[in-house]
Simulated assay, not measured.
Amino acid sequence: MYQTLEIERAGKVATIWMNRPAVFNAFDEQLIDELTMACHELDADPGVRIVVLGGRGKHFSAGADLNWMKRAAQFSHDQNVEDARRFAGMLRTLSGMSKPTIARVQGAALGGGTGLTAACDMAVASTDAVFSTSEVKFGIIPSAISPYVLRAIGPRHALRYFQSGERISAERALAIGLVGEVVDGAELDACVGQMVEALLQGGPLAQKAAKELIAAVNGRKIDDSVSEETAQRIARQRATEEAKDGIAAFLDKRPPGWLA
């Protein structure tokens, strides 16, 4: 079904592998479309609890494919807008998945690769990983990826890196919040596995609700409306069968139903 991706399933975990190692998993129109389709497919699959995004070969993703960039340079305004919408839509689909998402990053994660990292809920990087928002070096801007990178690193760091295009080491990415863990390459899968095991302990509907909660309250002034909204959200969640089972399981000293 997919020409640029491999979908690997292991129990309740699905890994999307970008599979263009010869070009360092660079984006083109097909990869963008297939990533969008894969995210929709896995989000709708009740057997999948967690989605991991990785890249085959030595690099996570080197950003835009050069041939794609050459084609885009000849686009009309309308073609440019439509092309950009597809890329922005793919990132929004990934970011908006109802299930936990983890970026598994090694080697280069440049431009759009940095965007993919930031669009996932969490990210683990190997010590050799390197990131950048290097678009200004080509006379363009990191527009489509900006909401996700800003969410991860904040405006102060974005003001520097969006304008300088500097390379960001794995340790620096950890310090500014772009990734959550940095480990030796040989330990990358084990670290992802530890995060997966922790995530599997939570209720799937509660995790979906937690993502929606963050989106709803982030950046808002803490006032009566926010307090009321948070009260309404926890009240609705407590009334779910998942919550009733989770609380009963804790009191009865048994595993909750989602661990069965």
Rank of each mutant, 00 (worst) to 15 (best):
M1Y: 13
M1Q: 13
Q3D: 13
Q3V: 04
E6M: 15
R9L: 02
R9K: 14
G11C: 10
V13Y: 00
A14T: 02
T15W: 00
I16Q: 01
M18N: 04
N19Y: 11
N19T: 06
N19G: 02
P21T: 09
P21G: 07
V23D: 07
N25P: 04
L31W: 02
L35A: 02
L35E: 00
E41H: 07
L42W: 01
A44I: 02
G47C: 02
V48F: 01
I50A: 00
V51G: 00
V52R: 03
G55D: 06
G55Q: 03
R56A: 13
G57D: 06
K58L: 14
H59K: 10
S61N: 08
A73H: 12
S76E: 13
H77S: 12
E82A: 13
D83Y: 12
D83A: 14
F87N: 02
G89L: 05
L91V: 09
R92M: 11
G96E: 09
M97A: 06
S98L: 05
A108W: 11
G111N: 13
G113F: 01
T114Q: 07
G115E: 08
L116T: 01
T117H: 01
A123C: 11
S126W: 02
A129T: 12
F131R: 05
S132R: 06
E135L: 15
I141S: 14
I141H: 14
A144M: 10
S146Q: 11
Y148A: 04
L150V: 08
G154S: 10
P155K: 13
P155M: 10
A158F: 14
Y161V: 09
F162Y: 14
F162G: 07
Q163C: 13
Q163G: 12
G165N: 07
I168C: 04
E171C: 08
A173I: 05
L178D: 05
G180H: 13
E181P: 00
V182E: 09
V183P: 07
V183D: 06
V183A: 09
D184K: 11
G185S: 13
A186V: 12
D189G: 12
A190R: 12
C191Y: 01
M195G: 15
G202P: 00
P204S: 03
A206T: 11
A206H: 15
K208A: 14
A209S: 09
A215S: 13
A216C: 10
N218L: 15
G219Q: 12
D224G: 00
S225A: 15
V226K: 03
V226Y: 02
S227Y: 11
A235L: 13
R236W: 04
E241W: 09
D245W: 08
G246I: 10
A249L: 09
